[in-house]
Nucleic acid binder design. Structure first.
Length: 674
RNA sequence: GGUCCCGUAGCUCAGUUGGAUAGAGCGUUGGCCUCCUAAGCCAAUGGUCGCGUGUUCGAAUCACGCUGGGACCGCCA
């Protein structure tokens, strides 16, 4: 059971309208802009038009019929709105009784029978998590927590993309360093990120030099093929410009050269030791990095070379340990990890391709295969079902060498994932750039198997996080990690706590919890399809941040209860059959707080329906804000009467339960004091 | 060229299944600790809701067009 008093009134009204006029229409409740107008209101314009009667006439009927309800104290019509004043004492009694008797307020069985997979983070295993893909983790985590709050059986999975082409140079570089006695001198995934950026740059330099050669530009043999010197770059650019190639080719070459030179120089500055050492090691141990990389990719994809498998797994596992550690400090935990390579080796990919071929959904182009998205969509009613009116582009799933690509494995993975957990629903938190591949997965499953299978899948997309105007780029070591932010946030928090009477240990505890919640909340509160331009100063600024605002409201509430206990004050237990508490909340701050708390369960339900998680954060802010106002204007321990004291204590206890529930859903830490 | 997303106060953002005078926080200015934690509260300041047309009793919200930004559109994931 959940408490949704407004919704009950709404349904009563709709029922009356149905009985009186035979009209079934959704009448949404809203809050009047001015609290003096009422507590809830229902606009009657549209229904009036439909029935052909005035709002006044309609409301007269409603008023007559609904009058017996105990919760409503008064209702009247103004300007086409049916405004309702609630009976504060009864409303409050019901609400407090309900909140205090629930083990977890807001928990419901709305989605009880459902088994739900949430896949999130699934970051490429060649770098630490940065603030960009951390948005993914936050969204996924809160989504999973929300479904749990609504009673679902949730399974959180991480898809390990170890088959990415970019992983291979990392594997080579890592083992080169390791076998020459180098060890991580920082968090393991951060170190791996540095190796990856270096190796990728060396590889790209080699490739661009090869490209110069094929374009009849003599590459300086006296300089390392993995290095770009100032003078040689200038020379190449001059040659390119004088050459007879097409303009576009020329421009691309010049651009690539200039960009790579910049990346190389910036890496040399950021990580001079790793970069120079790796360069030396590659030069002396590998005769062709490009060939070696391709060899690694092919061998690993085949999955038969145990040596290479071991090498890959060791490195990728290390990156994952790093990711897990980062996530853990933000209370984010996965249940299962699925390796892309396992999917590739399983034979499911082959099966998928055969089925698609059989159903004639593949277009051939030499050895390459394209999934005919639009054909599936039109023929099987998919487009109609999901109201897609445009032509869906085809997507390449097997390349011209006959090698299945990522989307192909993703189709197989989904089949595997859904079966393994026997899921009713599967939510994939993946950046919006993957809209087409994600749609293709759905279409492919729709085309091959039962359509219900495809209907289970939902792509939760989100906009990217950019850093001072550019994207986070692992290849250039151009990112801010949550780990770094966490450290700076902790420092900022300590500035405040150090002025107070806390022990070292308490300060540390507070810093950790406040920092984590600041960062998580800062990301969560923004609508996921809005791009975030990350400003490190703002994320860490305790004044700008509203995560601690919530924690502080909790600490304040708890402090009142503690003080009450010290004074031997205890609120009367309220029993379930209690009709009325002996107090009518008259202060604006009390009443607003009460009404706000009532909305909490509805907030969860509609957040899960609309998949707008920021609405939870914004609600939490409203609630905390209402409590701070109450705190300021309504003394609890120094209340004027015994009844008032009792009532306000009950209110504080209720707020605590609301906040605990919200912290649980958002995965934020609770602090007793701060 | 096509598809999708975004454009609201100086800054960061809510509000969008059409509803009453468009809201917060930060910033700026001023006020509130003899009183439960001032990481708080109160007040003032600040907006052609990107632009235009249309639908409607009523548009930030819906439709169409335009504009600025981003993502995707055949061998990366």
């Amino acid at each position: 059971m959940i408490s949704r008093l407004y919704t009950e009134i709404q349904q009563d009204i709709m029922e009356i309208l149905k009985q009186e006029y035979g009209v079934e229409k959704l009448i949404l409740w809203s809050k009047p802009h001015d609290i003096n107008l009422g507590d809830v209101s229902f606009p009657l314009f549209s229904i009036a038009k439909e029935i052909g009667k005035s709002p006044q006439e309609i409301s007269d009927i409603i008023i007559k019929k609904i009058a017996e309800s105990k919760i409503i104290q008064k209702l009247y019509v103004k300007g086409g709105f049916l405004n309702i004043f609630l009976d504060r004492e009864i409303f409050t009694t019901n609400l407090i009784k309900f909140i205090l008797n629930e083990p977890l307020y807001g928990y419901s069985t709305t989605r009880e029978s459902e088994r739900i997979i949430v896949e999130h983070t699934s970051s490429n295993p060649n770098a630490p998590l940065h603030i960009g893909n951390f948005r993914n983790s936050v969204i996924g985590d809160v989504l999973a927590r929300l479904f749990k709050m609504l009673g679902a059986n949730v399974n959180v999975r991480y898809y390990v993309n170890d088959l990415g082409k970019q992983v291979a140079p990392l594997i080579i570089g890592y083992h080169l360093l390791k076998s020459n006695g180098f060890h991580a001198d920082c968090k393991i995934d951060a170190w791996i990120g540095q190796i990856y950026a270096t190796m990728n740059t060396l590889l790209e330099i080699q490739q661009v030099k090869n490209l110069l050669n094929t374009n009849d530009i003599a590459v300086d043999q006296t300089i390392s093929i993995y290095r770009l010197e100032e003078t040689e770059v200038a020379k190449y650019i001059l040659f390119i410009k004088q050459g007879e190639k097409e303009k576009e080719i020329k421009e691309n070459l010049v651009e690539t050269l200039e960009k790579l030179k910049l990346v190389q120089d910036s890496l040399l500055q950021k990580i001079p030791i790793i970069y120079t050492e790796l360069h030396k090691l590659v030069l002396s141990n590998i005769d062709n990095l490009f060939n070696m990389t391709n060899n690694f990719i092919t061998k690993y994809l085949e999955g038969k070379d145990e040596g290479i498998k071991e090498k890959y797994r060791e490195v990728v596992n290390n990156t994952l340990y790093g990711h897990i550690e980062t996530l853990k400090s933000f209370n984010i935990i996965h249940d299962d990890f699925d390796w892309e390579s396992d999917v590739a080796w399983s034979g499911e990919v082959k099966y998928i391709l055969e089925e698609l071929e059989k159903n004639e959904f593949l277009r051939h182009d030499a050895k390459a295969r394209l999934l005919e998205n639009d054909k599936i969509g039109s023929q099987l009613g998919f487009k109609e079902k999901y109201s897609i009116t445009y032509k869906i582009p085809d997507i390449i799933i097997v390349n011209s060498e006959g090698i299945p690509l990522y989307p192909c494995r993703d189709i197989a993975y989904h089949l595997h994932k859904l079966e393994k957990f026997d899921a009713n629903y599967c939510y994939n938190v993946i950046g919006k750039q993957q809209q087409l591949p994600q749609l293709s997965v759905k279409l492919a499953l729709y085309g091959i198997f039962a359509q219900e299978l495809a209907d289970k899948i939902t792509h939760i997309d989100y906009e990217y996080v950019t850093l001072v105007g550019r994207k986070m780029a692992a290849r250039e070591l151009e990112y801010v990690t949550p780990d770094e932010l966490f450290e700076s946030a902790k420092k900022e928090v300590t500035k405040i706590t150090s002025t107070r009477n806390y022990t070292q240990e308490e300060q540390k505890e507070i810093a950790k919890k406040v920092a984590a919640s600041s960062i998580k909340y800062h990301i969560l509160k923004i609508d996921s399809n809005k791009a975030v331009i990350f400003d490190i100063k703002k994320a860490v600024d305790p004044n700008e941040n509203t995560g601690p605002f919530l924690q502080y409201s909790y600490a304040r509430a708890l402090s009142i209860l503690k003080k009450a206990k010290e004074k031997g004050l205890k609120p009367k237990q309220i029993s379930m059959d209690l009709e009325k508490i002996d107090f009518i909340p008259e202060k604006k701050e009390e009443w607003e707080l009460i009404k706000c708390m009532e909305e909490l369960p509805s907030v969860y339900i509609s957040a899960a329906e609309s998949l707008k998680l920021d609405s939870i954060a914004n609600f939490a802010f409203q609630l905390a804000s209402a409590f701070h106002k109450f705190y300021d204007k309504c003394p609890v321990l120094a209340a004027e009467t015994k009844e008032m004291l009792n009532f306000r204590l009950l209110l504080v206890m209720s707020v605590i339960k609301c906040l605990e529930s919200l912290f649980e859903v958002m995965g934020l830490d609770i602090l007793d004091k701060m």
